[in-house]
Amino acid sequence: MAIEITLTINGRRKILQAEPGESLLKLLRKAGYVEVKTGCEAGDCGSCLVLLDGRPVNSCMVLAPSVDGAEVTTVRGVGTQRAPHPIQIALVEAGGVQCGYCTPGIVIAAYALLRSNPTPSEREIREALDGNLCRCTGYEKIIAGVRLAAARMQEEGHHA
């Protein structure tokens, strides 16, 4: 028995049909937001991270009906190729993108971090990424990318 829920996704209002026991991840992907990835469906890997009312959450662990009325931001809401966000550019330039499967989740986590803490320490960057598994990069260049993004955003007076 589907429930109608309203979400504002990347700034656009969407009315969607969700099953009572359906995860936000599944709902988003069904609605075409395939940039939100499936890695484990258990809240362990972070590849499904989205912003929910501004906070990063594992969308695989969120029941869609429970977030009726919420604002959701996916990685494409942070930036697209036409208008990339400094975080995305910095990750690219620092070599922090290999297979790219974890990258949408990383972008969300980094975006949330820099919004609340524009000048994070190395430790704070690492801890903000504590729920993002990456098997390709060993994290070094991801952290370098976030550091680079923070520095550039400070310089340019850019607010996340």
Binding site: V34, E35, V36, G79, T80, Q88, G95, V97, T103, V107
Partner: peptide, 20 residues
């Protein structure tokens, strides 16, 4: 160290994987 040619599209979630 040129940028990986697909890196930006991956960072913006615009590249497609099998399930997409």
């Amino acid at each position: 160290s040129v940028n990986k040619i697909d890196a930006l599209a991956l960072a913006t979630g615009e590249e497609k994987f099998v399930d997409d």
